[in-house]
């Protein structure tokens, strides 16, 4: 469990980091919190020739308000984001997601950008960003580009980050008047989920749902957006009965993952349960906001 030999660079600015990526091309890999990359190095599943360490690039970390949005630097530690009053107040779904990411020690090192760039199908933060329809800002030799979350994750451990690019920050538009819900089931607390659900909902003054989002994670290479469920709720009072009916519209055929210990049948059984609970929680919180 010793990594294959590599060269190591620790730039302090984004420009320097991008320069190194340009110089070494496909031989180079950035490291953030190392919580996923270091085990892969140790198992020699990843064997980059060059490691570019982003931990000293101060400009990549931090959470800032920008009008209606929050901008979260890719190198922001998961623990920082979890403790941030801004996140608590404006992005409750991110907070609920992060509470389920690993453990205090892994969150102390692990970064938000690393989690999103790593694109584990069961990871919470990419699903949360999909639920928020966030924007990923990528920096590269030719400047920056903004990619919507829906186009960012391509598959298991696969994103649209191109050679020479770094995920710089994540921009999330903030909706103050919505309720959110998050539920996941894992074998142990802190593990990757067997299935997860994230929901957002807005209600009008009469308690009618005017906007809903539902994502199901850990069942397919990319978290599933369940528009049919959302559409079935818009225009309705989101009662338990209504939500139970709506989650039947989850496209169970789109589920792919099937392992000996966590079968497809089981995932198809629990995902609607989790979705219902997340939607109920979102509805109840949205309801609280109206009072």
């Amino acid at each position: 469990m010793k990594p294959a030999p590599f060269d190591y660079f620790a730039p302090t600015t984004l420009e320097e980091a991008l320069g190194l990526l340009k110089q070494y091309g496909s031989d180079a890999r950035v490291i953030a919190g190392g919580q996923s990359l270091v085990p892969m190095l140790a198992l020699r599943l990843a064997r980059p020739e060059v490691i570019v360490d982003l931990n000293r690039v101060a400009a990549l970390a931090g959470i800032a308000e920008d009008g209606e949005s929050l901008r979260i630097g890719a190198m922001t530690r998961q623990a920082r984001a979890l403790a941030s009053p801004l996140v608590h107040e404006k992005l409750p779904l991110l907070r609920h997601g992060l509470e389920n990411v690993g453990h205090p020690p892994t969150r102390a090192r692990g970064t938000l950008g690393g989690s999103i760039a790593h694109a584990d199908p069961a990871a919470e933060t990419p699903m949360v960003m999909l639920a928020y329809r966030a924007t990923m800002v990528l920096a590269g030799g030719a400047g920056e580009r903004a990619v919507p979350a829906d186009e960012f994750t391509l598959g298991t451990f696969d994103t649209c980050i191109a050679e020479g690019e770094i995920l710089k920050e994540i921009v999330v538009e903030v909706r103050p008047d919505e309720g959110t819900g998050f539920f996941e089931l894992s074998r142990r607390r802190g593990d990757f989920a067997m299935a997860s659900a994230a929901a957002r909902m807005r209600l009008d003054a009469a308690g009618t749902c005017i906007e809903a989002h539902l994502m199901i994670g850990a069942v397919a290479p990319v978290p599933l957006r369940c528009d049919a469920v959302a559409e079935a709720l818009v225009g309705a009072i989101p009662t338990e009965v209504r939500i139970r009916e709506a989650v039947r519209l989850i496209d169970l055929d789109a589920f792919e993952f099937d392992n000996p210990e966590i079968s497809l049948a089981y995932r198809r059984h629990i995902a609607p349960v989790l979705a219902r609970r997340a939607l109920m929680q979102a509805a109840s919180r949205a309801g609280d906001l109206r009072q």
């Binding site: 198992l43 074998r187 142990r188 607390r189 802190g190 000996p260």
Partner: peptide, 29 residues
Amino acid sequence: TFLEELAYNEDGQLTTGTFADYLMPNVYD
């Protein structure tokens, strides 16, 4: 009782050969 298993596939490969797959009780449990 709940978690730990050294599982093999049909080729005789150990499929739970790291702590990511071989789950031990942690403090929350």
